[in-house]
Amino acid sequence: MTLLSLDDVRVTYKLPGRGTLNAVDGVSFDLEPRQVLGLVGESGCGKSTLARAVCGLEPTSAGSISFNGQRIGKLGLRKRDPALMRIQMVFQNPFASLNPRRTIGSQIEDGLRVNPDRDAWNVAQLLEHVELDASSRDRYPHQFSGGQRQRIAIARAIAAGPELLIGDEPIASLDASLQARVAKLMRKLAVETGAALLFISHDLSVVRVIADDVAVMSAGKIVERGPVDRVWTNPQDAYTQRLLAAIPVVDGLGRLPG
C-alpha cells in the first residue's frame, strides 16, 4: 500500500497587491513504505513548501495529500492527530530547530513519548545511533556544533518512530565535510527503522548518493522523477539536464560547469 500519496497538490500564496503565487503548482507523486525519495530543485521552486504541506504546516489550495490513506489537513492550533505523528521532519537550520532552554535529553524524550512502540528506544541508544555520547543528554544545544545538533534533531525525529521521515534541506547549513555524512546517517536510520525518507535538497550530488528515487522540481512542478542512477546518467527533462550540467565536478581539471 502506498504510504504517502499526493494528488495534484497546489499551494497558493497571495502576493502583496492582487497577484497570487503558485508555490506548488499541481504536484502528484506516490511514496512507498521504506522508499528513499530525493526531492531536488533550486531556491524558490516550492520544495520546502511541499514538505511543509505534507506536515500540515501549509494549507493546500487544491488537491489532496494522504498518508496511509488518511487525508492530511492543515495543522491549526489543534493537537496533531496521533496517526499523522508518524510523519516527522528534520529542519534546515540546526541552530533554530532545538529549544535552546531545554536539555537535548528532554527534547529527545518528547519524541519517545509519541512513539507507539514505547520500548523501541531509549535516549542513550538514540544518541549512540547518531554517534553522540550518551552523556550528552544533560547538555544544552549551545554546547554542540552544527553537525552535532543536526544529528540530535535526527535522533528526536527518529525517537517518534516515524513511518515517513522528511528532511527539509537538512544539510544545507552544515560544513561541507559533514554534509554527506549527515545525509548518509539519515538514510541509514530511516532504512534501519523501516521508515520512508523524503530528502529535500538543492544538492543533487548528495541526493544521488542516498536516494533510491529522485524527483526534480522546478517552478512548483515536478519535471522529472525516476531512479536516481537513471536520472543522473540519462536525464530526460531539459531543466534536469541543465541542473546536472551546472554541478562542478571535483576532478582538479579546472573545467567550468554549465
Binding site: 561541507a176 550530488s205 562542478p248 565536478v249 581539471l253 579546472g254 573545467r255 567550468l256
Partner: peptide
Amino acid sequence: HDLGVMSA
C-alpha cells in the same frame, strides 16, 4: 568551502 567550485 566548496571543493567543486575550487576544482572548477
